[in-house]
């Protein structure tokens, strides 16, 4: 297998840490059905809610940011969260594509 991308999210995480920010790494660890991003896709979130990278096509990132900020606030090391298909109500967090994903959150420290 080959892949032709390198999103450099971990390198960015390292830069954030050097700037004394707290960093939570969010990684797609499982997918079911037609999910937008493959296993291993990443985003990082700091204590202010700034984020970089992605775990979906913009569908669940806001919820991931909230969860990551909660992890920092509660000083927990890690957490697994799952997202399923969203219902029709607008802005509800979920995946419009009909897929499901599991995202693993972990603090880097």
């Amino acid at each position: 297998m080959k892949n032709s991308f390198d999103e450099k999210i971990l390198e960015e995480a390292s830069d954030w840490l050097k700037a004394n920010q707290k960093v939570v790494l969010a990684t797609v660890i499982q997918t079911w059905g037609s999910s937008p991003r493959q296993v291993g896709s990443r985003m990082i979130v700091n204590e202010k809610g700034d984020f970089s990278g992605s775990v979906s096509g913009g569908c669940v990132e806001s919820a991931v940011v909230r969860e990551c900020m909660g992890l920092i606030k509660d000083n927990k090391p890690c957490k697994k969260i799952e997202f399923k298909v969203s219902n029709e109500s607008a802005w509800e967090v979920g995946l419009a594509c009909g897929g499901e994903i599991a995202v693993y959150l972990e603090q880097v420290n």
């Binding site: 971990l10 390198e11 880097v108």
Partner: peptide
């Protein structure tokens, strides 16, 4: 993830 693991990953990638 520990910071030293993150550093090691970046070094390995480089």
């Amino acid at each position: 993830m520990k910071i030293n693991i993150l550093k090691e990953i970046i070094e390995k990638k480089n």
